[in-house]
Nucleic acid binder design. Structure first.
Lengths: 283, 283
DNA sequence: TTGCTCCTCACGTCACGTGAGGTGGC
DNA sequence: TTGCTCCTCACGTCACGTGAGGTGGC
């Protein structure tokens, strides 16, 4: 039932279009490109010449990064250019974002390679960069003369939190170092609990300690590093992070934070599991 | 058998490291990060505090785009910085290449979106860009006064090819338009067969027609489009390709070619399946 | 009759996410 | 006793590549 020279078996069609037979069978299977005819009993697929531009259109859309699912929709909607435009716009955004992250990867790779070449050792190879969503915080901010005083406040906050904050909204303890310069006898710290809902605007204890609700804004980039030990020794890690941040083309952007990943135990502060968090931005 | 506060069950460890339990189990399974201890009968996994920086190192390498297989090797070779350097260098190259192709995608997306916005119609949406490897060609180059004369030469080349070139090295017929400007009465065309091995340096027939072997150099970028019809009507498609090439920031770079994807039949030239090939480069 | 082309399963890919179904410790 | 956490399968993902095993037309 050949119609002359313009009907091809799958092998010829695949050679002409420079794709594999498997690809053609797969596109048939998912309904993306059905052969012009299929022989009932042998199952042989026959493609027409008119299907060549169709296949090429598909390949072009694939090259642009659309998924086969999306291409199926585009082809079915009979080239509804509004739909197509929308898909292409979405893809555009995706590609732009991926370009940014790839560039950042490249920078990081370069600094790591440079580190190997100079020191032979990797610096801060356990520093993880990530984003942080906005969170609610029940906290108190105080000027304190010493770490001992800070530890007192932590103790009071922990006791108050356990009593006054419902267990299902109680998140981890967070300490924020507001002082831009590090002065161990002039601490400006905020200590409080992350809470999962805005239940209470404020909680107080009998001694006058008050935790007020505030929103901790989202952070786009946070250089984080987990350490175990006394929170007041955290500054030991600051140099490491600083070097890392600078080497990767960032700079510090805001108050650094310490997040208690395990509930703090006042009798075992030296075993605290604390995540150091440094907001950063491109410099 | 707890050793104090520095041993974690999988749930705690996953929360601290901000990864999923499934990920930890998977890394255990593939030998990337075994728990410090596993209880024999329950199968419970116990992680030590010292494994936190190890896990973060893994996550950093993953962020850089290494595969888990590669990370396993890096971690096993005890930070052999030579191996690591090599891996990172390889990755660097991959990322640079992928950046280039992504940028090109972006350009193409932009032109397609612009096309939708202006014309509402897609222009040349079946033009495929690809690379072409170097090939061997047994061909003759001639100045001809008309398409009829060119068709004569094609016929002679086909007959000669069938007779004098072994079937297993005989590739498709190729025509190259060497004249930079298109003049239907002043054709400068090269006609010949792609051959898969350098068997013979030249073949002749009794009339004096001679096909000489030469290398067709590789082409990095080729804008291609398959059409069915008389080869001499190919110029009808040239405008379309030209618009496409210009809109995408390319320019023509070399003689255009017509590749016969199906063996040409002199009695049915109007059914020829021909791939138009236009070497291009970024402009 | 012998190649050649076609066919239909079915597994493998990569790094997990997501249930299903079941068990131990407070 | 009831939740909670842990466990081990096992399937699904995306777009095919790669055999295995078998059948029709020249």
């Amino acid at each position: 039932v050949s119609k002359g020279g313009d009907v091809f078996r799958i092998g010829d069609f695949s050679r002409i279009a420079r794709v594999s037979c498997r690809l053609l069978r797969y596109y048939d299977e998912i309904g993306l490109l059905k052969p012009a005819a299929t022989e009932r009993y042998t199952g042989y697929r026959y493609y027409s010449a008119a299907q060549l531009p169709t296949l090429n259109r598909i390949l072009v859309l694939k090259e642009l990064g659309l998924s086969l699912d999306e291409i199926v929709r585009v082809m079915q909607s009979n080239a509804s250019s509004t739909d197509l435009r929308e898909l292409l716009q979405t893809r555009r955004g995706e590609i732009e974002r991926s370009l940014e992250t790839e560039k950042e990867r490249l920078r990081q790779l370069d600094t790591r390679i440079a580190q190997i070449d100079t020191g032979g050792q990797l610096v801060a190879d356990d520093v993880v960069i990530r984003a942080d969503p906005a969170q609610w915080l029940l906290s108190t901010r105080q000027q304190l003369p010493s770490f001992a005083a800070a530890r007192e406040v932590i103790g009071a906050v922990v006791r108050l939190g356990k009593k006054a904050i419902p267990a299902d909204t109680l998140g981890p303890l967070l300490a924020i170092a507001h002082a831009p310069e590090f002065e161990p006898d002039q601490l400006d710290v905020e200590i409080g609990y992350v809470v999962h809902s805005k239940a209470s605007a404020s909680v107080k204890d009998s001694s006058g300690l008050e935790l007020k609700l505030r929103e901790l804004p989202a952070t786009e980039r946070l250089a984080t590093c987990v350490r175990i030990g006394l929170p007041e020794h955290a500054h030991l890690i600051t140099g490491k992070i600083g070097a890392f941040v600078e080497a990767n083309g960032y700079r510090l952007a805001g108050a650094s934070r310490e997040l208690f990943l395990q509930p703090p135990r006042l009798d075992r502060m030296a075993e605290s599991v604390v995540e150091m968090q440094f907001p950063i931005e491109k410099s």
